[in-house]
Amino acid sequence: MSEDPDKVWPTGLNLKEAEEVHSYLIDGTRVFGALALLAHILVAFTTPWLG
């Protein structure tokens, strides 16, 4: 089935392509995490829940 040695199981992507798809996921998670942190800080300003 596969003659490309870089091919990643089981999607049929090769290594570079899979890494690119993964990079979108990683970037998304980072942006999401940063925004969630900021949102929590802002909520803490309006309704403090830590002491």
Partner: peptide, 19 residues
């Protein structure tokens, strides 16, 4: 992301609650 933080940012801006 902008929408996610916007309501809290607006509430802080308007001085709602402890803000």
């Amino acid at each position: 992301g902008g929408f996610a933080i916007m309501p809290f940012a607006l509430l802080v801006l308007s001085g709602y609650g402890e803000a």
